[in-house]
Amino acid sequence: MNSKERLTRRLAGKPVDRAPNCNLIMAFAPLYIGKPQSQFYLDYKVLVESNLRVAKDFDLDILGAISDPFREVFDFGGKVEFPEDDIPLCSDNLLKSYEDLPKLQIFDPYRSTRMQDRIQGIELYKREAGSEYPIMGWVEAPFAEAVDLRGMNEIMLDVYDHPEKLHQLLEICLEAEIRSAVAQIKAGADLIGMGDAAASLLGPDLFGAFALPYEQRLIAAVHEAGALARLHICGNTTAILNLMKLSGADIIDVDWKVNFKLACETYRGYAAACGNFDPVAVVQQGTPARIREAVWKCLDAGDANTLIMAGCEIPLSTPHENLKAIAEALRDYPRY
């Protein structure tokens, strides 16, 4: 059973040889193949080569085009720095005032720089391993993108101070993300992941007003273009679990601070829960024995369609034996 078959069958609740390993890999990948971090963010060939190596060596089941949150910001015209051997930084907000909103031009992903690079990465994945692995494109969800463009503190106040302007910004972000997602699907992405990290800072009322409706529209567009949707919201999302299930996503990631059993029960009949051991305390700092215990605990809490990952990105300095231990725990689980 290859990874593509494994994910498809698992999502349908059908028997599999092992649950899919859906960990999110970013900064770990270039380090693993000895390439500078900056190349991973700027050159799709390095992104693809490093992720393929990691997937093969550690039995991962999804090839992801996720790298950093700033591809769209860069293509909107924002300033992003790429330190040689560190993660990208965006230290200057592009949209300092809503007076500048009319100047914000939605980019064409095919004529952009960084989204175009991601599209090329997906095309390369497709050629190299498209029949074997599911290929996952990536976009920022509209609320997260608004934060990337305007700043976290600003948006957190805008929800009260400038709700109408914020909705105008969210409409622009939604359009950019739909175009980016559809272009990736046309390039060969089987699923589109979307990060909405900042949304976990909102309570249910504000999440329902400013994040969820835009997630729903983005996910509807992804489905219409023929791909699956994966919603990733880092942080403690316990208060919004009930709303997240209404997003329409096929897979909903669950960060480690959330009770996984509760998440699986909440999402039953709506989406496959994907989670959720602690990436730092368990994966980066734990022992293989502790990792096995954590993986099995998630599988015990889940359903026939439950997927497994650390709650968020695999940390940069994760020992290789620990990442191997996740794959071994999935393989050895006795109760599939």
Binding site: N153, M156, L157, V159, Y160, L201, L202, G203, L206, T238, A239
Partner: peptide
């Protein structure tokens, strides 16, 4: 206690 969230803390 999870009664309010970050925007409410900020204002």
């Amino acid at each position: 206690e999870g009664q309010i969230f970050v925007p409410e803390m900020l204002i």
